[in-house]
Amino acid sequence: MEVTEVLLPGVGIRYEFVTAEGERVGVVAHRDGGAELVVYAPSDPDEPRSLVRLDREECEAVAEILGAPRVAERFADLAREIPGLRTGQTVVSAASPFAGRPLGQTRARTLTGASVVAIVRGTQVIASPGPEQVLRAGDRLVVIGTDTGIAGVEALLGG
C-alpha cells in the first residue's frame, strides 16, 4: 500500500492512501497531536467528507488499539525464534532520571546487554532509535534481551 505525504505548513501532515476497496482515505495529523480522518468522494477529489476529528488523547487511544500492541507482537515473534531471547516493555516515568535525555546516556546496552529496539510514543513508533534519540516521559520502550537484561533496563529507567 502506498501512502503519500503532503506537508501542511503550520498545521501538520496529510497522509493519503487508497484502500483495497478503492476508497481514498486521508489522515490529517495535527502538530498538536490531534488528527482528522476523511474520505474523498470519487466525484470531487478536491473536497473530502470529514469522518471524525480526534484530539490528542483520542488519537493515542486509537493508535493503541490499532498499532502499539502489534509492534510488540512482531518483536515477540522474532524473539520466539531465538532461545533465551525475550522482549519486554518498559515505560519512561516522569520521575525517571532519563526523561528528557538522550537514549545513549542510559548506557542501557553496555550495562545490561539488552537493546532498546523501538520507542512507542503516543501515535508514533520510532523503530531502532539511535543513541541521540531523546526520551520523553510516557515513552514506552520495547526492549529485547535476556530476562535479567530487560529487568536491568527497567531498573535503569525507573526513577
Binding site: L8, E36, E47
Partner: peptide, 12 residues
Amino acid sequence: RRLANRETPAVL
C-alpha cells in the same frame, strides 16, 4: 473542516 482539502496546502 477543510484541512484535508486539496487546495489547503496551496493556501498554507
